[in-house]
Amino acid sequence: MRMIWLRLRRDKGALLGLFLVTVVVLMAIFAPLIAPYDPNAQNLSERRSLPSSEHLMGQDTYGRDIFSRIVYGSRNTLMAGIVCVLIAGVIGSFLGLIAGFYEGKLGNLIMRSMDVVLAYPYFLLAILIVAVLSPGLFNAIVAVSITTIPSYARTVRSNTLVLKNSLFVEAARALGSTNRWIIFKHILPNSMASIIVLSTVGVATAIISTAALSYIGLGAQPPAPEWGLMLSEGRSYLTSAPHISIFSGLSIVLLVLGFNLFGDGLRDVLDPRLK
């Protein structure tokens, strides 16, 4: 595993990506220390003021400091991306392992269910789920997670199908291991490379999707400081106060760029064939 880090260090793109992500992560962790103002503190006499020395990114339509909202918003955005990938990753990988190892009717059932989920355009399915659960950031995360599960299931399943016929699995069987032992101690670890690659890109996609849901009003609700929501709040004042939308959108772009760069680098190291 140290070898992966050493090879990764040579990839400048990946390092840049890691840097961007780390900056945002630190921003999220130390938000109370970094943000100069309370993100929800309104100041109605200074609406939509442009960036100044007191307000690095200006103020939004309720006079709140945009910079502070961006800093606190990083928490929402990061959490959304990471939680989505965690939920989808755990559930999807588990389903893929079972479907690939046991095959048969159970495997078929699982993969057909994945087909049903994939039959819906993913954003539409997310909208549908939020419509059922009612708008909110948490529900948006659930919705995006559900749409991400099939890609994990499919990938892990195809890995499992190959791995379960390998010699070291037979060797483990000869030693008297149970199916559970083989699945979790041999097949899953050897699938981790694919899972990790899926996850770094998955975080990027999840961030965009949850921000998109927030943008159309189905995700985070006011007055939460969430980057997608801030974007839509700035939409109406694009002519007079574009800085509201610019900064929030730029933050999303940089964070997603970071994950994409790092993910690409990681993929090149873990599995160059996928290039």
Binding site: L167, F168, A171, A172, A174
Partner: peptide
């Protein structure tokens, strides 16, 4: 027990020697 022909493929590439040799004892 069995000893396989291919010494590399019969070992899980992600496990080190300690884990490989302890595996049978851990299993049981």
């Amino acid at each position: 027990q069995i000893i396989f022909q291919d010494p590399f493929s019969s070992l899980d590439p992600r496990k080190n020697i300690m884990k490989l040799i302890s595996e049978p004892m851990l299993i049981h």
